[in-house]
């Protein structure tokens, strides 16, 4: 399926294909993305206040869910502050073609959370901030953008329908911040079971590109 898209998108000249994709893709028009664009372009403080009102409580809840080693409740409000400051400072770099405001703010929060933990637990100087690892090429390819647009709604819809045991593991991994190995210890399940539950969930949500793609992996 993806192979087909790659073929049709890549074969004609790259630039005309790209224009076609961007024109047909629906524009991002949700309230939060528009507000974030306003903050980035005009330093709009009212728009920022609205974003804050919506996202600060979600970010706090995200922080409170953390079960990382070394995390304590007092850090939750610090994280909210740090993330919202970064949102203001980095809003100009937000690209609405690539991600919704919610996804973009999630990635800022995840990176801040890791950096806070690293700073707390590490006496060594850390050369990079976590967001450095997520630095993407300036221009995404049409394939990536197209896939991304199709997926947002599907993920939301299919997440709600996951079996409880798959949903539970995803929450452990994303919200509590447990590695697969830690999740397997906690749930008393073999590591392979944890990995396959995650994989099943991702397949149901169509996040994994294709079954053929997995078979190319070197066998572990």
């Amino acid at each position: 399926m993806l192979r087909k898209i790659i073929d049709t998108v890549d074969k004609p000249s790259q630039s005309t294909a790209k224009v076609a994709v961007l024109n047909t893709a629906e524009k991002r028009s949700d309230e939060w993305s528009l507000l974030l664009i306003a903050v980035g372009e005009t330093r709009d403080r009212q728009a920022f206040a609205k974003l804050f009102k919506h996202f600060a409580p979600l970010l706090k809840s995200f922080s409170e869910a953390s079960r990382h080693q070394g995390w304590y409740p007092g850090l939750s409000e610090d994280l909210v502050q740090e993330v919202m400051i970064k949102v203001w400072q980095k809003a100009a770099g937000y690209n609405a073609e690539k991600a919704s405001a919610t996804t973009w703010i999630y990635t800022v929060a995840r990176n801040c959370r890791i950096d806070m933990l690293r700073r707390k637990s590490n006496t060594q100087h850390l050369p990079l901030e976590n967001e450095d690892y997520w630095h993407e090429p300036d221009e995404e390819t049409p394939v990536t953008l197209l896939r991304q647009k199709r997926n947002g709604d599907k993920i939301q819809e299919s997440l709600a329908k996951l079996p409880k045991e798959q949903d539970e593991i995803l929450r452990k991994v994303y919200l509590e911040g447990k590695s697969h190995a830690e999740a397997s210890q906690e749930l008393g399940l073999p590591l392979g079971t944890v990995k396959s539950r995650v994989r099943l969930a991702l397949q149901k949500m169509q996040i994994l590109v294709s079954p053929e793609f997995q078979e190319e992996l070197p066998h572990e």
Partner: peptide
């Protein structure tokens, strides 16, 4: 990108504090 969308969905689904 899709995995990050999943993360953001899990974050948004949680009860706000």
């Amino acid at each position: 990108l899709s995995l990050d969308q999943l993360g953001s969905q899990l974050m948004s689904d949680a009860k706000p504090s």
